[in-house]
């Protein structure tokens, strides 16, 4: 599993598509693929890429879900997957309790994924720095 992080609009997805090839990647946006979709991708030799992981976290928190468990389970089942997430914690701590929780939990999910990832890349200005 690989984790790609960086600020908004820094070229994270482009970095992934260029590095592994757009034809090899199958991208899901702000959601985890359903199991049959993931299997179909795997059967076709495609790498599952989950883009906008932070949006997925936000959506699941709003729905009362547990994104930590869902993401961890997916990562375990699909060890070749790539997660792409914005870094959203580098600001003033929001007044709104949900916004605070969203930033905190997204950060902790990133820490947990980074801990288990074989590689972590931070993209700045389109350039990937391998930080693990």
């Amino acid at each position: 599993m690989r984790l790609i992080i960086g600020g908004y609009s820094q070229g994270k997805l482009r970095y992934v598509l260029q590095r592994w090839g757009a034809e090899v990647c199958r991208v899901w946006d702000g959601e985890l693929p359903r199991e049959e979709q993931a299997q179909e991708a795997a059967a076709g030799g495609r790498i599952p890429v989950v883009n906008h992981l932070h949006s997925l976290v936000k959506k699941r928190l709003e729905q009362g879900g547990c994104p930590e468990e869902e993401i961890a389970a997916f990562a375990q089942q699909h060890p070749d997957c790539v997660f792409i997430s914005d870094e959203i914690g580098n600001g003033i701590v929001p007044m709104d309790a949900f916004e605070r929780e969203y930033r905190e939990r997204t950060g902790r999910i990133q820490v947990e994924l980074a801990n288990r990832a074989e590689e972590v890349v931070r993209v700045l200005c389109g350039i990937g720095q391998r930080i693990k």
């Binding site: 914690g89 580098n90 600001g91 701590v93 930033r103 905190e104 997204t106 950060g107 902790r108």
Partner: peptide, 10 residues
Amino acid sequence: TGGSGSGKSA
């Protein structure tokens, strides 16, 4: 230094 939830405290 680091952002919220960055793991800086740990």
